[in-house]
């Protein structure tokens, strides 16, 4: 069978699976969940196959990259169906973010900037939903905006999800009074700079075209001095760094942030310098925040996948290094690589 035929077959199989899942989602099929015994058997088989790969590698046979891809695929997908729970411990930066929001009195105005797009949504959307949930639980007024074009649409999705949650289902939230989505504005960090003197100049209308002055929640908000707390969800530029440099340093905004795992290390110096009240880093940060607020969601659910995939990557790194030292044939190993 040629590679082309294999690729076409793989695409057909994936398409069929996607269609089945889509039909299932529309028809509200129940979630498949493996029992603990099945989960343990799967984990055992996974470990056994990794040991087998280690033996093969020590013998001087590097496995193909497709095998690595297969293991990562298994490590990411199968835990989604496992009913195993993990103890998630909150890190100090997540606790400090929670405490800073918890200290806000009811009615405080919170500005949330959605500076990301769908590729980063698996990490940042759970943070957005949990943060919004916390705000509405505490009766805080929420204003959302985006420095990225797709940000406000992600905000819209998060609102939809939060309002349909069990805890908030019975409560009524009025658009324009309890929350507002100001939409996207071009200009990157200059938008933050301009908001320091006038919000209205950057957002003359909201996400759906309502005039700024017609929205009771924001019509009296002139600039950052009328905002009690800011939260930035960032996947790059413009994002948290710009909010700190202009919003915090220039206009004295109280800022918390949620970042992708890749970007979070860049933000730690600001956190240590107290320019941020707290930080949620990647899926782990989202899960910790969910546990802390008592609203377990996607972050908590996906952490099992993350644990498994980290373990698989570590296992492959160890296998590669064990072989590197034990074989004593470094050049041969390199030569055997594809």
């Amino acid at each position: 069978m040629s590679t082309k035929v294999k690729e076409i077959l793989a695409v057909i199989v994936i398409t069929i699976f996607c269609l089945i899942f889509y039909i299932g989602k529309i028809n509200g099929w129940e979630t498949i969940e493996f029992s603990s015994t099945v989960s343990m058997v799967i984990i055992f088989l996974l470990v056994l196959s990794l040991v087998w790969i280690l033996i093969l590698t020590i013998k001087g046979k590097m496995i193909e990259r497709r095998i690595v891809f297969l293991f990562v695929g298994i490590a990411v997908t199968l835990p989604l169906f496992m009913g195993i729970s993990q103890k998630i411990k909150s890190s100090p930066e997540v606790v400090s973010l929670y405490e800073s929001v918890d200290a806000l009195p009811a009615g405080s105005k919170v500005l949330i900037s959605f500076d990301y797009d769908p590729p980063s949504a698996p990490e940042l959307q759970p943070m957005a939903e949990t943060f919004l949930h916390l705000c509405f639980e505490k009766n805080l007024k929420v204003i959302t905006m985006g420095l990225w074009p797709q940000g406000p649409q992600q905000a819209s999705l998060a609102f939809e999800k939060v309002f349909s949650s069990e805890k908030l289902k019975g409560r009524k939230f009025e658009y324009g009074v309890d929350y507002v989505n100001l939409g996207f504005q071009t200009g990157n960090e200059f938008v933050i700079q301009r908001m320091g003197s006038s919000f209205k100049s950057m957002f003359p209308t909201d996400y759906v075209g309502n005039a700024y002055d017609d929205l009771p929640l924001v019509k009296n908000i002139k600039n950052f001095s009328n905002i009690d707390y800011c939260f930035n969800l960032s996947a790059g530029f413009p994002g948290t760094v710009e909010w700190i440099q202009i919003g915090v340093d220039r206009f004295g905004v109280l800022l918390g942030a949620g970042n992708t795992a890749v970007q979070a290390p860049q933000i730690y110096p600001y956190l240590n310098a107290k320019q941020l009240t707290g930080l949620l880093g990647g899926m782990n940060g989202a899960a910790e925040f969910e546990v802390l607020t008592g609203n377990p969601g996607k972050g908590t659910k996906f952490m099992l996948s993350q644990s498994f995939s980290h373990m698989v990557v570590i296992a492959f790194v160890l296998i590669g290094n064990v072989a590197f030292f034990m074989s004593g044939r470094k050049s041969q190993l390199l030569g055997n690589e594809e």
Partner: peptide
């Protein structure tokens, strides 16, 4: 990206 990171780590992340 996750797949490429795993593959690259296995093949190149050596002490």
């Amino acid at each position: 990206l996750a797949f490429f990171v795993a593959s690259a780590s296995y093949r190149a992340f050596r002490a």
